[in-house]
């Protein structure tokens, strides 16, 4: 299926993510997820919570296509991930922005090139994205560090580079794994404000966090995982709140 066909198959305004009895069993036999079913509406803002080892990372990996389900059906943008061809997955990944807990920046590349990575893997000429990247880096407060290497940045600055990389391609789905875990509370609040801004621009946002205060304050729908099972999800269809 080519990108155009996929886009047509994806119903605008419908669920951007739909999991139906999804399970993941690793090679060692460990069952990381069991019978997980939920839907995320396009344009929603969601939190994913649960204790360590509950399966949050596995669920996120399924959503950002680092894993395929062992059981059940995982559907992203109208495409069944389990049966999608290998050549189809990169096109889906280009619609997803990911902020990893450990940032996962490439240490040999400058801040600019790390952020520009989504364009470079698409063979977009430099002239077509240089201004966007510069603007975005200024917006996250790193306009003066575009040529710096990641190792010379503080944790908070690296976090902002990772966020800039995740959002530069204007993804339809933005996934963040503990984005406030490695930064001070003030920086954490700024990062959440940034996600809210991106959400207002139309992105569906999923944030995995241990910070229950943050979840309570936001009032956003919550997916809660415990021992690989979804224990909290407001119905199968988790519509975003109107005020978000």
């Amino acid at each position: 299926m080519n990108e155009k066909t996929r886009t047509l198959a994806y119903r605008e305004g419908g669920p951007i993510v739909r999991f139906d009895k999804v399970g993941v069993t690793y090679g060692s036999g460990t069952q990381a997820l069991r019978n997980v079913s939920f839907e995320l509406e396009s344009g929603g803002f969601y939190f994913l919570t649960g204790p360590s080892g509950a399966g949050k990372s596995t669920l996120l990996k399924l959503m950002y296509l680092a894993l395929r389900p062992s059981h059940g059906r995982a559907n992203l943008f109208g495409v069944d991930v389990g049966s999608a061809g290998r050549d189809d997955l990169p096109m889906l990944r280009r619609k997803i922005g990911v902020v990893f807990q450990d940032f996962r920046l490439l240490p040999h590349l400058s801040v600019f090139d790390n952020v520009a990575m989504p364009f470079r893997v698409r063979d977009v000429p430099l002239a077509n994205y240089a201004e966007d990247v510069d603007d975005l880096l200024r917006w996250v407060g790193l306009g003066g560090r575009i040529n710096a290497l990641p190792e010379t940045l503080s944790g908070g600055e690296q976090q902002r580079v990772a966020i800039a990389r995740a959002v530069v391609g204007k993804p339809s789905l933005l996934i963040a794994d503990e984005p406030t875990g490695n930064v001070d509370p003030e920086m954490g609040a700024r990062i959440i404000r940034l996600f809210i801004e991106l959400h207002k621009l139309g992105a569906t946002v999923v944030i995995a966090t241990h910070d229950l205060d943050l979840v309570r304050r936001s009032g956003a729908p919550v997916l809660r995982l415990e021992a690989g099972e979804l224990t909290q999800a407001p119905g199968l269809s988790l519509a975003p709140k109107a005020n978000q």
Binding site: Y64, D87, R93, R94, L106, P118, V121, G169
Partner: peptide
């Protein structure tokens, strides 16, 4: 491998 993983996750095709 880590760099390859990241390239994959930002949408790089195998051919790239």
């Amino acid at each position: 491998r880590e760099a390859v993983n990241i390239l994959h996750l930002v949408g790089a095709k195998d051919s790239f």
